[in-house]
Structures are given as C-alpha cells and as structure tokens.
Amino acid sequence: MDIRFLESFITVAECGSIAEAARRLNLTPAALAQRLRTLEQELGHSLVTRVGRTVRPTGSGLAVMDHARKLIEATRDLRAIAANDEPAGQLRLGATATSLTGLLPDILSRLRAQYPKIEYFIRPGASVDLYHGVVAGELDAAMVVRPQFPVPKSTGWLTLREEPLVLIGPEGMVLDDPKAVIERNPFIRYDRNQWGGQIVDRYLHQHGLQVREWLELDALDAIAALVDRGLGVAIVPDWAPPWPHGLRLQKRVLPDGGVRQTGVLWGRSGARISAVRAFVQICGGEAGSGVQA
C-alpha cells in the first residue's frame, strides 16, 4: 500500500473537497481521485462519499482514519530513525502569518542546502494554536509569539526577533503626539485573542488610552492596508518584512510600549529530534542569540 494514498485520503477528509485537497497536495483533482479509487480497491470499501458540494468520509473511512494517521506517522518516523542521527525525515513545522513570509523562507533555504534529506510539512496558524500543537506533539517546532507564561520543560525556546510596538497612520499624518492621534482617530485593533494583540491591549490600559474602536481583526497585513487607505490608525508590532507592497504609512515606535518576541518553540524529544536540532541551529544562526534551556 502506497503511504501517499493514505495521506491523500486524510487530506480529502480534512478539507471536505477533492479540489482543495488537490491544491494542498499539488496534484490535479483527477490524479487525486484516482489515488482514492486505488486505495478503496485495495481495502475493498468506499472511503468517501459526496454530500452536496462536500466530500465526507463514509463509515468505513471514519473507521480507518485514526489507524491511517498512525501508520503515516510511523512511516515518517522510520525514515528519521533509519537515517541514524543524520537529519532526515519529515519535519512538521508551524508558523504565524508574519513568520511564514518574513522569517521562515530564508531559514528553510539554508536548512535545505545543508540537510537535503529533510522533508517539510508546514501548518500556518495563530500562535496559541501552534503552541498547543508543539506541546501535544502534533508539530515538531513552530515560529510563534512568545507566550506570557513559562514554556513547559519538555520544550525549548529561541527568540528570533524583538518587535517593538509601533503606531501606524496613513501617509501625511503627523504622529508627534501618539496619545492624541490614538484617541482622536478611528482605531483598528489587533485581535485581543492573539498573544500579540494582548500586548497592545496592555499598552492601552497602562497608558489610560480611550480609543474609538470600529474594527478588530487578527491579520496584521490587513490592518496595515486599512490604515494605508485612511480608515484609521493602529498599534502593531514592527513585524519582519515584507510588509504589504505599496503601502504609504507613517510609523512611530511607542515609548514604553513593550515588545512582541517572535521565536521558535520546539519539542525536545521524538524520532525526528536530529532534524529539529538542525532547524533550531539554523534559526540560532539567523537570530544571533542564545537558546533558552
């Protein structure tokens, strides 16, 4: 049985769509459908069925999903174990939106050049979700905002960037008096459910600022684009470039605004630990900082 066919089935079940699953797997829908048919013929049962516009697992599909995931995981571990401490196998990474574009590409480029036997799975997401993914062992490492509580001893932490809070306004706006600017203009808030948004919220409370909030969202690039269009001002961490192309913004670092630390959280054990250590080593070289024990 080809393990890739099991991975295809799991992806279809998670996406609820052959077209979306095909995009994720870089296959044509026809090729993905053929993989499913072949797998169903090997097992002797239908695994998925169409319900309206979605595709859902059948009873047989649901019955084999957990076993399929364990088999896929075991196969990935075997590749890493067989490498005999050489970094190899699939490295499961998570990354926030700004890390995915601003930090991860250069790191993966260097890692791939030094350790070509490592394969990658990357899950985008919010810091809190990726944090729990690492702690639960679903991810080997993740680039996240540092939580405001100690990380578990089963994990390690490496700070990559110290990102001060900045006030951003549209082109031509004078930001000499941040308090007046924040209180007199419509305010676009960085989502308080995000760890970075909570840093912004603490700044507002600590300085007694009353804002005219009209929108709250968790996409920093979208916040910057809205400010560029003159729809308000915002406080955001000064995240790693690139920022959205073509923005014309005024930016001012806020004194005593605190910082958002972006870094790598990783699990200290597992079959892929050699690949994880290689990843952290490359990250450390990029950051030029020490690793937290």
Results as ranks from 00 to 15, higher is better:
Met1Tyr: 05
Ile3Asn: 11
Ser8Met: 10
Ile10Val: 12
Ala13Cys: 04
Glu20Ala: 14
Glu20His: 08
Leu25Lys: 12
Pro29Asn: 12
Gln34Ser: 02
Arg37Asn: 06
Thr38Arg: 15
Glu42Ala: 10
Val48Pro: 10
Val48Gln: 08
Val51Glu: 12
Val51Ile: 05
Arg53Ile: 02
Thr54Trp: 14
Arg56Met: 01
Thr58His: 15
Thr58Asn: 14
Gly61Lys: 11
Leu62Asp: 05
Ala63Gly: 09
Met65Leu: 02
Leu71Arg: 13
Arg76Ala: 07
Arg79Asn: 05
Ala82Asn: 01
Asn84Trp: 07
Glu86Asn: 14
Leu91Gln: 05
Ala97Gln: 09
Ala97Ser: 06
Ser99Trp: 07
Leu100Lys: 10
Thr101Ile: 07
Gly102Arg: 10
Leu108Phe: 04
Arg110Leu: 05
Gln114Trp: 10
Tyr115Met: 07
Pro116Lys: 12
Lys117Arg: 15
Ile118Phe: 13
Glu119Thr: 10
Tyr120Phe: 14
Ile122Asp: 08
Pro124Phe: 11
Ala126Phe: 00
Ser127Pro: 05
Asp129Glu: 00
Glu138Tyr: 10
Leu139Phe: 08
Ala141Ile: 03
Val144Met: 10
Pro147Trp: 13
Gln148Pro: 02
Phe149Glu: 01
Phe149Asp: 07
Pro150Leu: 13
Pro150Ser: 11
Lys153Ile: 04
Trp157Val: 03
Leu158Glu: 03
Leu160Gln: 11
Glu163Cys: 06
Leu167Met: 06
Pro170His: 12
Pro170Ile: 06
Gly172Met: 08
Met173Lys: 15
Pro178Lys: 13
Val181Arg: 14
Ile182Ala: 09
Ile182Thr: 00
Pro186Leu: 11
Ile188Cys: 05
Tyr190Asp: 01
Asp191Gln: 09
Asn193Glu: 02
Arg202Gly: 00
Tyr203Glu: 01
Leu204Lys: 06
Gln206Arg: 12
Gln206Trp: 11
His207Tyr: 06
Gly208Phe: 00
Glu216Cys: 05
Ala219Tyr: 10
Ala219Ile: 01
Ala222Ser: 08
Ala225Pro: 00
Ala225Lys: 13
Leu226Pro: 00
Asp228Val: 06
Asp228Gly: 04
Arg229Met: 08
Arg229Thr: 02
Gly232Thr: 01
Val233Glu: 04
Val233Thr: 02
Val233Gln: 07
Val236Arg: 09
Pro237Thr: 03
Pro241Ser: 13
Pro244His: 13
Pro244Asn: 09
Pro244Gly: 11
His245Phe: 02
Gly246Pro: 08
Val253Arg: 15
Gly257Ile: 00
Gly263Val: 03
Leu265Gln: 12
Gly267Lys: 15
Ala271Asn: 07
Ala275Leu: 05
Ala275Phe: 13
Phe279Asp: 04
Phe279Asn: 04
Val280Phe: 14
Gly284Ala: 09
Gly285Glu: 13
Gly288Lys: 13
Gln292Phe: 13
